[in-house]
């Protein structure tokens, strides 16, 4: 049966990963980093939501497994953020195929499995790390005087840097607004103060 999500995932894969179009995304640094890669991860994520069983949060093992899965996705995305590998994906079709496969299977898919299994503290941790990584990359691309990628021009690098800082700002606001101004009414005080909980 074809669900709405699987159609979207297939569509994303078609747009992002199939050659003539894939090369078009890769021809520009901004399109490559901020459009193609997110689309691939999102496609994997959508596919993942189709196959991942719903979490049983009572089980501690599930939580640790969730952390492992999100960590895997983080490593995978980080790897492809290294300018050298971005370049390599442009220069070699084989590397590019590996990039596409790993981003779908080792980043998107595990994210779909892991994210629902994370507790609020772990989610906050991932969120905060994502903000500082976006700032790090943004400042790097914005201020680096030379070319980081052989396949791309310096002015694109600066655009990417600004976009990255924008993403950091967006992630910050998107996290801060509900946290500061969220409209839930809270719950009564704990009956036994000083007691432990598992977040």
């Amino acid at each position: 049966m074809l669900s709405y999500r699987s159609l979207v995932a297939a569509g994303l894969l078609l747009i992002a990963a199939v050659p003539p179009l894939a090369w078009w995304w890769e021809a520009s640094l901004v399109r490559h980093m901020l459009m193609q890669i997110p689309m691939l991860v999102l496609a994997g994520f959508l596919l993942g939501t189709l196959v991942a069983p719903s979490p049983d949060l009572g089980v501690r093992e599930e939580r640790a497994g969730g952390i492992a899965a999100v960590l895997l996705a983080t490593f995978c995305v980080t790897f492809w953020m290294i300018p050298r590998w971005l370049d390599a994906a442009v220069a070699s079709h084989r590397v590019d195929a590996i990039k596409i496969m790993t981003l779908v299977l080792l980043a998107g898919l595990p994210l779909a499995w892991g994210w629902p299994r994370l507790g609020p503290v772990a989610r906050g941790f991932v969120w905060v790390q994502a903000i500082s990584m976006a700032i790090v990359l943004g400042l790097l691309y914005l201020t680096f005087p030379n070319r980081l990628c052989n396949s791309y021009l310096v002015n694109e690098q600066a655009i990417l840097g600004i976009a990255m800082l924008g993403i950091a700002g967006f992630l910050g606001l998107a996290g801060a607004v509900p946290v500061l101004f969220g409209a839930n009414n809270g719950s009564p005080a704990p009956r036994h103060p000083g007691a432990r909980v598992d977040p």
Partner: peptide, 27 residues
């Protein structure tokens, strides 16, 4: 699982940057 991912993830990044020294195609 966490340990394995940490180990392999770090190893992959290490390999992919020649020991965290080589981040650009030029180097």
């Amino acid at each position: 699982g966490i340990m394995v991912v940490l180990l392999f993830g770090t190893a992959a990044l290490w390999w992919g940057s020649d020991g965290f020294t080589t981040f650009t195609a030029e180097s």
